[in-house]
Design a protein around this nucleic acid. Sequence first.
DNA 1: TGTTCGAGATGAACCGTTTCCATGCTGTTG
DNA 2: CAACAGCATGGAAACGGTTCATCTCGAACA
Lengths: 336, 336
Amino acid sequence: MSKVGIRDVAKLAGVSTGTVSRVLNDHPSVTKDVRARVEGIIKDLGYLPDPSARSMRGKVSRLIGIVIPDLTNPFFSELVQSAEQAAANHGYNIIVMTSLDHAAKEADRIKQLTSRKVDGIILVPSNDFHTLKLPKGLPIVVVDRLMPGYSGIAADHRNGVRLGVEHLLKLGHRRIGFISGPGHSVPANDRLRGYLDAMEQADGGTTMAGPPLIAEAAFDYESGRSAGNYLLARARNERPTAIFASSDQQAIGCMRAAHDLGIPIPAALSIVGFDGIPLASMTTPRLTTVKQPIQDVAAAAVAVLLNKQTAPELDDPILFACEILEGETTAPPQPD
Amino acid sequence: MSKVGIRDVAKLAGVSTGTVSRVLNDHPSVTKDVRARVEGIIKDLGYLPDPSARSMRGKVSRLIGIVIPDLTNPFFSELVQSAEQAAANHGYNIIVMTSLDHAAKEADRIKQLTSRKVDGIILVPSNDFHTLKLPKGLPIVVVDRLMPGYSGIAADHRNGVRLGVEHLLKLGHRRIGFISGPGHSVPANDRLRGYLDAMEQADGGTTMAGPPLIAEAAFDYESGRSAGNYLLARARNERPTAIFASSDQQAIGCMRAAHDLGIPIPAALSIVGFDGIPLASMTTPRLTTVKQPIQDVAAAAVAVLLNKQTAPELDDPILFACEILEGETTAPPQPD
DNA sequence: TGTTCGAGATGAACCGTTTCCATGCTGTTG
DNA sequence: CAACAGCATGGAAACGGTTCATCTCGAACA
């Protein structure tokens, strides 16, 4: 059983290779019955076109690259998985690369991808993205960590956070702390603005009286923990009755800090996270969190690269709405 | 600036295309000065060979495929990340595919990879692997979930579990429960044997008196939780004082079960997990777990595929030792 | 000196598709 | 009825490398 090629299919179907090729590519000018016959033979023979040959003569490689900072981050791994499924549905495959948040590595990976003639790149930039030169003429979609000047797709972080904070406000909380992401990160600032939106709108500014309850931290667990310690290390009637964390990992770190300080959750402290990673439902108690629509984001990114959907304008990214997942870490505040 | 091809290089260097090709592939029979001249021209022109064309006629694609059941599982995402780094060090790239534990999808993905002419495949088989026909002639390394009849690489689950159970024995535990993996899974059975090894060796069988303390479950959180409920739903002097779970996710689910039953950890119950995923250090209290050497496994798999290392014999897999990470979920048992 | 031999280089064939142009056929129009 | 437009199809060139059968040339040997 040697490998079957397009000529074998053509011979058996009694047509020319050109016709078979047209069938394969859904070219309109081929009659229904010929198409049916050829497709039958293809299935019988288990014929699979050789991607190398296709991409040599044609221009497409049916390969798309995805570059992310860290696959260990559950948010990104879900992104990759969703993208892989979406791409597979269109006959595309994914080359995955991790930059480990290292700008030089990131640039190198992107160069490798271009020389592979990928049909497009999904990029989650490293944190020093400003040093990054993207190649022209290759479709690139920037995802999640939007870069000014490039067209991107992401969850609507700002309104998502607002949603979460409003949930806390509705429960009656007023002293709501916020654990922010790293200051230079675009999504971190979006999230911060969402918090400020909600708080300012809450009751005309009086809510914000008193010391600011904002702590800046990296997105990881350990940073969330120390930020939590910082926010909670004050007198009971001054410390926040609720904390919104910019990532689930931060939120879980913060839960740990509260636990170590002997502050019961949610009795004395409500916590809301952001991301909606699977881990969020595995904590004790289960974390209330704002879920990003990762699958939608990934599917849209793939669709844009495959021209199934028009690319977003520069500086006017496509945003997908977040939704709140209620867990067990939120409750009305106790009286002081 | 039209694209430069091998013929352009050949013409400028005053040699034939064949010679240029041999320079590109480090073929020995080409003189030093010719090689130098050609390499100079290549650099001048910024020539980059077209990978599709190379892999069409030639046999190597510098691409390796990796097929896993679920990228959302932190164990697998770390595996992929490690493999990507290892491959990149050798100029190779990774095509990642997820089967979602669906045998048909898995077979389809493998077919896609072979038609892409990947130079090798790293495979973590789905749970119904027995229906799987692997193509001959393509180097495949089976990782983690070893398949009888194929050469594989994995962590030494059996001895790893034994290590963890012995840790509990040393603390003084005797009624040690075990949450097993799904019965048809090869690593699940390896882990179970590790448990039995340790228990039998402990004190000549007397330890095993009484009802068996083994619960079978899937590897996920929810299953761990119900297995925990099952093991703990008995009188205090009959229920286990310690539980070894076959995965960290199970262990965390089990912690949740204990918490719901009002059993304090580690005071009244010690728990040890298996895998060593990052999540393990984020629980409260921190989970004691047996860490698999994922990076070593991934690096070895890549090395084997690239012929940097001789492949393991069939049915004699390469095993890497696990190590125990002490957390806060283990303590000596309370008297009954 | 003539012959053999082998390393280094050549040029064309080849890989499996897509795409372009030619061809024949059908149906429409003047 | 002739001319022609349009469309489905066939056949072959083209894509950009690798590889193989040849060729050339100089050294080694008798």
